[in-house]
């Protein structure tokens, strides 16, 4: 099985999710990495052992990238194209599938071979239901959910081939790309995460979550309501529509435990939940639950932890 993997590049660095997709491809068949535009990035991709195709296109324009993936897919006679489960990956994969008249599976957490076919595993309904899917189209297209595979081992660099994919059908013009969130929030790599939700009540009281995180040397997380109410930037979001995390310790403060959120944190080793509703669903997945108002509990917790330091 010939598998093409589109490797996303952000500020010169390869996106972790793309490397996970490359690992998935190497497990299943012969992987080829496709990098758009950037020769330095192509060299970085080559160390993961799969031959690299570097397509000379405007990597800032999604239509140009889609054209390149489509052209290389045809030229290499690929059986499958994998994308990272990032915003760009999730945009490009269904568009490619539509052009190739095939299906697309998004948010894939696992794959196995079933004869010549691939059997995909993906969560639905916020993670309470797991689906096993098959794509009966000729070309297999999917996006890999972040955190589902570990990145491949680096080794002796593979070959790099430059390619001019020809004219793409450009329908959008990029006017401006702006960075508003400059803080680096490493939720995926964190050992401890302290997350806050709607139960924190206000932007001011959400600061308690930040303080507790500081005392523990932890990364701050948040559920969707806290993000949507503007208490903290969306770079901190944990859950189905945010980051999938797996820290040693996850402390959920004032989070009721919607599946949307829980599915993003369920891989944590130890979960502590603080919530005033004793029936909150977060308690059903917590190793330790504290029933009470997070706004009262957190200051005391901070005090106790400081005492023991």
């Amino acid at each position: 099985m010939e598998i093409l993997v589109y490797i996303e590049v952000k500020e010169g660095e390869l996106v972790q999710g793309s490397l996970e997709a490359l690992a998935a491809a190497k497990e299943l068949g012969n992987a080829t990495a496709l990098v758009a535009g950037d020769a330095d990035a192509a060299a970085k991709a080559a160390v993961y052992g799969a031959p690299v195709v570097c397509a000379k296109v405007d990597a800032a324009n999604p239509d140009a990238i889609l054209g390149a993936v489509e052209a290389v897919c045809k030229a290499k006679n690929a059986d499958a194209v994998f994308f990272a489960g990032t915003q760009w990956g999730k945009d490009l994969a269904p568009r490619l599938a539509s052009r190739a008249k095939t299906g697309c599976i998004t948010d894939v957490t696992g794959m196995e071979k079933d004869g010549d076919a691939i059997l995909y595993t993906r969560p639905a309904f916020g993670g309470t239901v797991i689906e096993k899917m098959k794509n009966h189209g000729a070309l297999q297209v999917c996006t890999i959910r972040s955190g589902s595979y570990s990145k491949p081992e680096a080794g002796a660099p593979a070959s790099i081939e430059e390619c001019d994919p020809g004219e793409a059908d450009i329908r959008v013009k990029v006017l401006e790309a702006a960075k508003e969130i400059t803080e680096a929030v490493n939720l995926e790599g964190a050992d401890i995460i302290v997350s806050g939700g709607r139960g924190m009540g206000s932007k001011e009281d959400f600061q308690l979550v930040v303080e507790l995180a500081k005392v523990l040397g932890a990364t701050v997380g948040a559920s969707r309501p806290a993000i949507e109410d503007g208490w903290i930037s969306r770079a901190h979001q944990v859950g189905q529509s945010g980051k999938i995390v797996a820290p040693k310790l996850y402390i959920a403060c004032g989070i009721s435990g919607a599946m949307q959120h829980i599915s993003g944190a369920i891989g944590s080793k130890y979960i502590v939940a603080i919530n005033k509703d004793p029936d909150a669903s977060i308690f059903s997945v917590a190793d330790l639950g504290l029933v009470g108002d997070a706004k009262q509990i957190i200051p005391l917790l901070i005090e106790e932890i400081k005492k023991r330091k």
Binding site: G103, V129, H136, F283, V285
Partner: peptide
């Protein structure tokens, strides 16, 4: 093109103390 072959529920995490 896509067929859902089966549905399952993920393994439950046990509630602690």
């Amino acid at each position: 093109y896509v067929e859902c072959v089966s549905y399952t529920e993920p393994p439950k995490r046990e509630a602690g103390l």
